[in-house]
Simulated scan of single mutants.
Amino acid sequence: MFEAPPIWFILLAFLAAIGPLVFIHEFGHYIVGRWFGIGAETFSIGFGREVAGWTDKRGTRWKVGWLPLGGYVRFTGDMDPASMGKDLDKLPEHERLRAFHAKPVWQRALVVFAGPAFNFLTAILIFAAFIMAFGSPRTPPVIEEVLAGSPAAQAGIRPGDRIVALDGEPIERFDAIADFATLRPGEQVELTVQRGSTTFTATPRLATIVEKDRFGQQSRRGQLGVGNRSVRLEPVPVLEIIPEAVSMTVRLVDATATGLWQIVSGRRPLAELGGPIKMAQVAGQVASLGPLEFVQLLAFFSINLGFINLLPVPMLDGGHLALYAVEAVRRRPLEARAQEWLFRGGLAALLTLMMVATFNDLGSIGLWQTLGRLLG
């Protein structure tokens, strides 16, 4: 078991991870806004009091805030936190022409979508670099080993069988089986199995495995109980590298969505929801393993950042996109009061989510157990 890295190393790794990803996200908004002729007043990495910054020749203030948990671009005409575009008529005419909310709704939507899109693009480029350097798993989903007493054995799966679909979704690679099972501990799943010229369906209930990682952190995962000794990384033709990287990114987005839905629907405990403290802990642990592992983690973090921001919650990019969709259908935006109430509801939801995640994070580092021992 590895020793946990020191606090200073964890904080440094967290800043090294979250800082560039937030910059990439906000730069996506910024650069697409620039293409559409929108002025930018502030580009901030972090919130709160400015600790460093400068103003460029276009008048944009680039700054770093003391609280490195996000960032923002304030475009010309963005005069309220809800980004509703009120009081545009109070701007001088030359600024009104460059105002965000004076642009067509499709341009505003592209500017907003660009942030998450740049995060996904970052992950794609990282995965493409790894595929180019090391190859990609392309082993067919053929079973070579079946663990005695496992759900697969109980369902009648044998060595030589080929799993062609999981819950009705076709698969082509062996690693897809583990990815699928990991997210579904204790759940009954449907396997479509090919044995020679015969195809049949099996419905095992996956085992629940509780295991510790090399740093002693516990996690739950599902297990089918099959193996393939031939799993390896294979070279990928140059023209297939980007499509392969896109496919990996899509699979991870799907896994993120599945995990979140399981928490929302009660199939996974709310205690598995993590926040910034957990991210910092993971960043420090992975950074201590080496630069390649850390860069790979950046891809996972980038996907999570892009995905979370696309959720249809006011204040997040997805919430703005939902409002723009309504505006496009109605040919006019929602009334300011309705947007304000949606903004307040979104803020309350995000604060609640942050409190729950922070509570879980503090538990994951043993704070509640320590307090219990002290008070007991």
Rank of each mutant, 00 (worst) to 15 (best):
I157W: 02
R158H: 14
P159G: 15
P159T: 14
G160V: 13
G160W: 12
G160A: 13
G160L: 15
D161P: 10
D161Y: 08
D161M: 07
I163H: 07
V164G: 09
A165S: 11
L166D: 03
L166K: 08
D167E: 11
D167A: 07
D167W: 05
G168C: 08
E169Y: 07
E169M: 07
E169D: 11
E169P: 01
P170S: 01
P170G: 01
I171E: 01
F174N: 06
F174H: 01
A176W: 00
A178D: 00
A178S: 10
A178Y: 05
D179G: 13
D179K: 04
D179I: 09
A181M: 01
A181I: 01
A181S: 13
L183K: 10
R184V: 12
P185W: 01
G186W: 11
E187I: 00
Q188W: 10
Q188F: 12
V189T: 03
E190N: 10
E190P: 06
L191C: 02
L191Q: 00
V193T: 08
Q194L: 07
Q194K: 02
Q194A: 09
Q194V: 05
R195A: 08
S197M: 12
S197L: 15
S197A: 15
T198K: 14
T198W: 11
T198Y: 12
T199L: 05
T199W: 02
F200T: 05
F200E: 02
F200W: 11
F200P: 03
F200D: 09
F200V: 07
T201V: 15
T201L: 13
T201R: 14
T201Q: 13
T201I: 15
A202M: 11
T203M: 14
T203I: 11
P204R: 10
R205L: 03
L206T: 01
T208W: 08
T208L: 11
I209N: 10
I209R: 01
V210P: 07
E211A: 14
E211W: 06
K212M: 05
K212R: 14
K212P: 06
D213V: 08
R214I: 13
F215Q: 09
F215G: 02
F215T: 04
F215E: 00
G216S: 10
G216D: 01
G216K: 08
Q217I: 09
Q217T: 09
Q217V: 11
Q217M: 12
Q218G: 13
Q218C: 12
R221G: 05
R221C: 00
G222E: 00
L224K: 04
L224S: 05
L224H: 08
G225C: 04
G225I: 07
G225Y: 00
V226P: 06
G227K: 03
G227Q: 00
N228L: 04
N228I: 04
N228T: 07
